[in-house]
């Protein structure tokens, strides 16, 4: 068990900046998800921590040790790859035992650790088989078991579930969470799937264009995004943003008012499920354009003063296309962003 500390790590590919002076700390035993769109640098960061990619500047510490210039083998970590990377010429047992054999553990320890990892991932019955005879989900279990068998100080996972079909992914996600909680391993988990990040992680680091936009608990990432990017990227439907103008220490519109120590134009962000639908004259006028029944709720898309807004309504609500409703905002559940920088005020 050990913490991961990243200090000012940058990565340049030619003229392009892949990572820009990045700081991140994953405390001992914590599960942190790196979430971001493809090309945001999250996999590059993971590979730098693993030692599979060189960094342009900065330091990587595991525990108290600076591992920046150590080869991957000497960093005391394990990794689960996106396409599993299970060795096809070795049996499942030998795959899981690979790391232990490299550490020259005695046979009894190897047998014991492999058995424990195999039991945890429920691959006991396949230990004598070759990976070619396994399904994708089983191979992924082997890859996770191989990583846990060495009892690593730090576990890195690179989109481990993205090659599985939707149902299997849901199943593996819940299982992974319980397995990793039990093992108590410090984990850094790269994903572009927000539900995966929300469901698994203690904290989520949202990355965009080589920088970490926000790092916080899933709940706060969702309800208090630190930038318009985070609000728009996390959550389905994404956060709504309305252009407004603050004056005299207040931000106010129809049926809504809150104190704000900022003058001039701002963006008011709110989640679609955080508004109350009221009569048109009691809140912000919302003209319904599209109604999508989602089963658990209705997804309404419409316009507020020329800006597109998505809100969620109860499934049995009697709403028709073309109606004008009122939106009542809750001052405790909105965020205010700077129009220029897109950062929260």
């Amino acid at each position: 068990m050990a913490a991961i500390t990243i200090e000012g790590v940058s990565k340049r590919f030619g003229a392009a900046m892949a990572l820009e002076h990045l700081d991140l700390t994953v405390t001992d035993g914590e599960f942190v998800a790196l979430l971001g769109p493809s090309g945001c640098g999250k996999t590059t960061l993971l590979r730098i921590i693993a030692g599979l990619e060189t960094r342009s500047s900065g330091r990587v510490l595991i525990g108290d040790q600076d591992v920046s210039d150590l080869p991957p083998a000497k960093r005391g970590l394990a990794m689960v790859f996106q396409n599993y990377a299970v060795f096809p010429h070795l049996t499942v047992f030998e795959n899981v035992a690979f790391g232990l054999r490299m550490q020259k553990r005695d046979e009894a320890t190897i047998q014991r650790q492999v058995k424990r990892a195999a039991d945890l991932l429920q691959i006991g019955p396949y230990l004598d088989r070759y990976p070619a005879k396994l399904s994708g989900g089983q191979r992924q279990r082997v890859a996770v078991a191989r990583a846990l068998a060495v009892e690593p100080a730090v576990l890195l996972m690179d989109e481990p579930l993205s090659n599985l079909d939707a149902l299997l992914r849901l199943e593996m996600r819940a299982e992974l969470k319980s397995v990793l909680k039990e093992a108590g391993t410090t984990t850094l988990y790269v994903t572009h799937d927000q539900t995966e990040a929300m469901g698994l992680a203690d904290r989520i680091a949202v990355m965009y264009k080589g920088v970490i936009e926000q790092i916080d608990t899933p709940t706060r990432i969702y309800s208090k995004p630190s930038s318009t990017f985070v609000g728009g990227f996390v959550g389905s439907p994404p956060m709504n943003f309305l252009s407004m103008t603050a004056s005299a220490g207040r931000l106010a519109c129809a049926g809504f008012s809150m104190p704000l120590a900022h003058e001039g134009p701002v963006l008011l962000g709110f989640r679609g499920e955080d508004v109350a639908l009221v009569k048109a004259d009691q809140g912000l006028g919302f003209e319904v354009r599209v109604i999508e029944p989602m089963g658990s709720h209705l997804l309404l898309t419409g316009m507020v003063k020329g800006e597109r807004v998505r809100v969620v309504a109860a499934p049995q609500a009697e709403i028709e296309r073309g109606m004008t409703l009122g939106l009542q905002l809750d001052a405790a559940r909105v965020v205010v962003m700077d129009t220029q920088t897109g950062k929260a005020l």
Binding site: A50, G51, L52, P71, P72, A73, L77, A78, M79, F81, Q82, N83, A85, F87, P88, F98, G99, M102, Q103, R146, V150
Partner: peptide
């Protein structure tokens, strides 16, 4: 696949191993 080699590195191998 390159990942197979990378996995071997991560799990304790030198390049040659």
């Amino acid at each position: 696949p390159r990942e197979l080699e990378e996995a071997a590195w991560v799990f304790g191998c030198t390049r040659w191993q």
